[in-house]
Design a binder for these strands. Structure first.
Length: 565
RNA sequence: UGGCCCGUGGUGUAAUCGGUAACACACCGGAUUUUGGUUCCGGCAUUCUAGGUUCAAGUCCUAGCGGGCCAGCCA
């Protein structure tokens, strides 16, 4: 069946690690890290990175650290570090006691900066942001050196100390590495190492008013933690020479940076900025809105940790920029939930059905299998009575071809119960169908000798007097475009939001066994899909989110029928 | 017109010293089925192009073409 992780051919990162281990590099140690910036919630793209980093550590008997890359106090917050920890843990990974923060290294970083100044590899620059941009040159033209580039060491040391002491306003000065203003890689054109930011940091408070940049922090943090393989996404490829330059110039332990392609999903935006915009503009209810590709959104939607890990395992890891069909994500939850989710009968859009030949005071308990994929799951009893609800979609007065459900004069099986025949369609004064009158074949009861009789369709149902009311939230893709950013010049991704991405059905009926369902419980509603009890659910007011529908062959047939017309 | 990276089916990812394209999802058929679910079987690729090396090239060489990233005191 599905190949266990060890059977899959190793991705290129694993191949590098394996080769390094075989060559006795790093003393055969393998030590990775997952380095989020706490400026937003984790999304499915981070899950790919988490699975890669923790997965490789596990596979090679190594370790993986959790490290917060918190060098920009203006954007970061403790709310995010808490959510990130929760999400990584929920995904099933454990960093044990190795929870680190780049901000823990600020003092060491400061010393290293002084060392670079002393070695004439860094200088305090007085160019403002605009002037610095002008000096940088362009992709095709070299930059111009800062007028302060050759400032004496002592003066640099003094100025840098005064920057730290808070003597200068934001933006007035920077500490820059002295590399090469003519370098074709713009990252090497005397990059900024420190900037002045009079901002309160979520961990260090007001201890600092200068903060190191990502480039001057990341490699050194890896170095301090004795990371062996520093795995990051492709957009940092151009930064690797700088990563290497800092480690070499500082003469410190030097990990290897390896870049892979970040995850893109169809019909989805993934950047934290866009996700944050969706939240603040209230296009969604929050970071954990079930339509969001965030870990918290997927969790609330009903995705399991195993399904997300499985997804990350099947999409692979490579360097080619690519976009995964969101259907792959959906199929990975179906795969997981198919074997684990208890089956239950629920009617989303009720249509009353009366068994006219069934005694009005009779109730029979019908045995129903909890999960045909899992014999251990056992069975339960579902009450049947004279009045039932079936799905509106399961009856058609004028059915198209291949419609195997209920129609006037037609027969159908009620799952785990009787075969019934539709005798009469009751309508209101507007011609709307309000009720179906049916008769049942008493010999066809499930489990009885006469049950072998075959009919084309089987319907799910709920007994009217025993039904539990519920609200069901149906979710669809948030965007209409496969690539939400594929828009004309005068539009942006928000112009193609799906207006029907959330549909609330407030009049659903579910079988009585669901009365005790708790938030987080997952079920398969037979013939419909997988659902998860939402945290908004109350004992008297059940609320369920549809995680994903079942594969729907009938929907496909209808679609092709419509196309033929 | 600069540097770096990447190009295998509809979408992704494989193919470990060059040996005759595999897996997943999607799609199209069929079987089984008291979920139009699950499961099972079958179908679906001249490996960006053009040359070259070789008995043999997705893998090697050359030249094109196409795509991505980079000009934050963001990460």
């Amino acid at each position: 069946m599905n190949a266990p992780e060890s059977d899959r051919s190793p991705n290129f990162v694993e191949q590098i690690v394996r080769a390094d281990q075989a060559a006795e590099k790093w003393d055969r140690r393998v030590h990775t890290r997952f380095p989020p910036e706490p400026n937003g919630y984790l999304h499915i793209g981070h899950a790919k990175s988490i699975c890669l980093n923790f997965g490789i550590a596990a596979k090679f008997q190594g370790l993986c650290n959790l490290r917060f890359d918190d060098t920009n106090p203006a954007k970061e917050d403790n709310e995010y570090v808490e959510s990130i920890k929760e999400d990584v843990r929920w995904l099933g990974f454990d960093w044990q006691e190795r929870e680190f923060y780049a901000s823990d290294y600020f003092e060491q970083l400061y010393e290293w900066a002084r060392q670079l100044i002393t070695d004439r590899h860094a200088f305090v620059c007085e160019l403002g942001p605009d002037a610095m941009r002008e000096h940088r040159g362009t992709l095709t033209e070299p930059g111009l050196p800062s007028p302060n580039r050759d400032r004496p060491v002592e003066e640099n040391l003094d100025l840098f100390a005064r920057m730290r002491a808070g003597e200068f306003p934001d933006g007035s000065r920077t500490l820059r590495a002295k590399i090469d203003m003519g370098h074709p890689n713009l990252n090497l054109r005397d990059p900024v190492m420190y900037r002045i930011l009079h901002q309160t940091h979520h961990r260090t408070g007001d201890q600092w008013c200068i903060y190191p940049t990502y480039d001057f922090t990341h490699g050194q943090s890896d170095s301090i933690e004795r990371i062996t393989h520093s795995i990051c996404t492709l957009e940092f490829e151009n930064h690797r020479p700088l990563y290497d330059w800092y480690c070499q110039s500082l003469k410190i332990y030097h990990p290897q940076q390896i870049e892979f392609a970040r995850l893109n999903l169809t019909y989805t935006v993934m950047s934290k900025r866009r996700l944050r915009d969706l939240v603040t503009a209230q296009h969604v209810s929050g970071w954990d809105d079930p339509r969001m590709p965030t870990i918290s959104g997927l969790r609330r939607r009903g995705y399991t940790p195993a399904s997300i890990r499985r997804f990350c395992d099947t999409i692979g890891v490579a360097k080619a920029t690519s976009t995964i069909d969101v259907g792959v994500l959906e199929s990975s939850v179906r795969e997981d939930l198919n074997s684990t989710a208890p089956r239950v009968m629920a009617v989303q859009r009720p249509l009353k059905l009366v068994l006219v030949d069934y005694p009005s005071d009779q109730v029979e308990m019908m045995a129903a299998v909890n999960n045909p994929e899992d014999p251990q799951a056992g069975s339960r009893e579902v009450p049947l009575s004279r009045e039932l609800y079936i799905e509106q979609d399961d009856f058609r007065e004028d059915p198209p071809g291949k419609f195997f459900r209920l129609k006037p004069g037609g027969e159908v099986r009620l799952r785990y119960a009787y075969i019934i025949r539709c005798e009469q369609v009751i309508k209101d004064e507007h011609g709307e169908i309000v009720e179906l009158h049916c008769t049942h074949d008493p010999d066809s009861r499930s489990g009885m000798p006469g049950a072998g009789r075959r009919v084309k369709g089987t319907l799910h149902w709920v007994s009217v007097p025993h039904a539990v009311s519920a609200e069901v939230r149906l979710y669809d893709r948030l965007f209409l475009r496969e690539d939400p950013d594929d828009v004309s010049a005068d539009e942006n991704y928000l112009d193609h939001l799906n207006p029907d991405s959330l549909q609330i059905l407030s009049d659903c009926r579910v079988e009585p066994s669901l009365a005790q369902a708790q938030p987080g419980d997952r079920f398969q509603f037979e013939r419909l899909g997988y659902y998860c009890v939402d945290r908004d659910s109350q004992p008297q007011r059940l609320v369920l989110n549809r995680t994903v529908s079942l594969r729907d062959r009938w929907a496909k047939i209808q679609k092709s029928q419509n196309q033929r017309k």
